[in-house]
Amino acid sequence: MNEMQKLKFYQKGTLTVGNRLVDEASRNVQASLDRSNSLTCGHRACQGCGEALGARYAIDAAMRASNRNLIAVNATGCLEVFTTPYPETSWQMPWMHSLFGNAAAVATGVAAAMRVTGKPATRVVAQGGDGGTTDIGFGCLSGMFERNDDVLYICYDNEGYMNTGVQRSSATPPTARTATTPPLGKETGNVFGTGKFVPKIAVAHEIPYVATASVADLHDLEAKITKAMSMHGARYIQINVPCPLGWGAASHDTIRLARLAIETGLFPIFEAEHGRITHVRKIRSQVPVVEYLKLQRRFAHLFKGGVEDPRVARMQAIADRHIAEYGLLEPVAGAA
């Protein structure tokens, strides 16, 4: 068998959740019959919710990595609201909620409590949406990073305050329509040049581990959670989770949109250790941003009357900048 054949040994199932040709132990957590289903049925997330999916992917993987010895601290946000309307819960694990902005600080406290009560094997994750992470909870998060507290913080990034009616957050992309950036006036939708990409800020804290991931690449996501759980100290993973309601997309397109976010270059997938980028997930087959934008009504004003707004080109420029900055494309053979 030649090398090429070895690499592509499972042509039908290399990228799927499971694969009957792979032994049980090497399959994804999500393919196993006994996955913990930390976030179980009956939750009130919208149809096709990317965050519900991302949270189960991430927490199930963390559960396996910690031998199901895990406590989750949740910021306010969709994830908290749709899973725990009092008095019911969808969490099949120890889970607590305090305020919108303090999940990182509460998780720090839980981790300290575990340490002083002699339960070092009990691991702690904090989780929240982009609003609770990049805006409201950012001070607590930065503090947790600089103290190098033993917490894995997971941000489910759906690019806005979806729970309260789709308002802009500092993770909302330019031109996107939200309740606070309506498609009115000259500069319709969110403006260019604002917002922040927290993974880069996390890298700048030089904490042990930072990664981005996506619900469109389960293999990559589970590997990153598992790696993060094998380490101690402050760790941060931001997962791109499309929101059918807030983005104005079909519920069956959630994973397709997450995939397009990667393949356009708009959402770069990488990991970094102690302040240095160590790995980048390459684009498999590059697509123009138009294909991503057109599936979402939050960008519909860019294509009004069949005319493409010049700002589409600026969105493409953002994707191109990411591609150049992170080296998202495989080098072309023969190119200098």
């Binding site: 039908k12 199932g13 799927t16 959740v17 499971g18 694969n19 009957r20 399959r27 994804n28 999500q30 393919a31 389960l218």
Partner: peptide, 8 residues
């Protein structure tokens, strides 16, 4: 072909 995608 039991790829587990739906399950996942």
């Amino acid at each position: 072909f039991e790829c587990d995608n739906c399950y996942g």
